[in-house]
Write a protein that binds this DNA or RNA. Sequence first.
DNA 1: GACTACAAACTTGTAGACAATACCGTAGGC
DNA 2: GCCTACGGTATTGTCTACAAGTTTGTAGTC
Lengths: 235, 235
Amino acid sequence: MNDASLTPAHGATDKPPTSSEIGERIWLAIAERRLRPGTRLKEEQLAEIFGVSRARIRQALAGLASEGLVQLLPNRGSVVAAPTVEEAGDVFFTRKLVEERIIERLTPRITPRQIAELRKHVARERAAAEADAVSDVIRLSGGFHMSLAELLGSEFLISTLRDLISRCSLITAVYRDSAHYNCGPDEHSEIIDCLAAGDAGAAMRVMRTHLDHITTSLDLDVERQIESDLKRVLG
Amino acid sequence: MNDASLTPAHGATDKPPTSSEIGERIWLAIAERRLRPGTRLKEEQLAEIFGVSRARIRQALAGLASEGLVQLLPNRGSVVAAPTVEEAGDVFFTRKLVEERIIERLTPRITPRQIAELRKHVARERAAAEADAVSDVIRLSGGFHMSLAELLGSEFLISTLRDLISRCSLITAVYRDSAHYNCGPDEHSEIIDCLAAGDAGAAMRVMRTHLDHITTSLDLDVERQIESDLKRVLG
DNA sequence: GACTACAAACTTGTAGACAATACCGTAGGC
DNA sequence: GCCTACGGTATTGTCTACAAGTTTGTAGTC
């Protein structure tokens, strides 16, 4: 693993990062494909990189493991997870259902003020896309979907969606063929229009189409060989 | 918290329990309503009860927190979570969708040998129900659903369903009105029949009905006041 | 008499050290 | 020449001690 792949652009900070900040940085490194599936994540190495003790690293890794981003091998360490094609299908299928549920429940209760907030978010997405700020684009495009869950306020759906989006980011990082990062802001805008019009059915349809676009942009048919499959390939 | 509520029936073991064993015991205590929502879970106290150090307790609590069973309050400790009525709706809704997906994918590939395994499982459920072995009944009724996911072999759906079943157990523990524990074996048997017949549609229908039965057995309309709602009640 | 500021006790958060386990290279035997 | 057994090295798993934060009780003041 290249140490530079985890150090943030804005340089070293004074305070030691919290375990969730560490998790976020590792997550971003995975989503940006700087950390490839199969990469070993040694605790001591990470502890040195982030300037914290191993205990905090273990916390962060445990969190990432529960989100399915890293795999914890007992007594043998952690590696960046390598989702299978089948798993990818399940994840996107589930995400579609959960996001439709969110839309369905959010539509009748959303306020004009919240609509405005969402539009601002999409504007930030556009700005980041035009500036080619890859980290921001990835974070913001997931952030739009998270915002919908947060507006709804259901703790369960929020944490479930966070989990699903993380997994989707990993999947797209593995199976996406080109530079086209996550979802585009135009379809997000369209979803907001439906929400503003109070048309839950239309919003759900657009959301479904939107997520289908992401799915179809993946090479799920191609069998991408990844590091952890090495044994199977050569065995 | 009563210490006795966590000690297992079969007495103290020689070896110290692993963090997942500790998590399981706490989970069971919650599912059996021995630990009520809002109960504080002090690390040192738990460490003494299970005869391990605090580090292992923290692991167990972190795992339970990611399943939504306990709530981690930074610098203030952990309490047994108190799901709201709205959250309960979301959880059951999502569980229905996930279990239907499992059934849908499992039906065309299930083998007679696996059918036989499932029938054996239901037989164990019946035996436990007749013997009034509450712990076993709770574990086995959830176990049936887990078995379906495990037969399918999708890591994602397995971990997702484990999460959902845990949350459902907590919800039923909070909102169920009487002694009727989780799901009955008869409907499980019916699901197996549909699987054996290769009729995915029927199996999905039965599963949906089955889960609806659990939902309707809850007092979701009644506002059960729980400790963490104290402020809202008195404020 | 009620409110605010302070102090003590308790609980969690963190770090560092030690023990257990798994992997890799080497030597010996078949 | 290949396989197996052994030992060194590296990495994870666990525990104990200390630091930081929060809550609770108490005294002083308005």
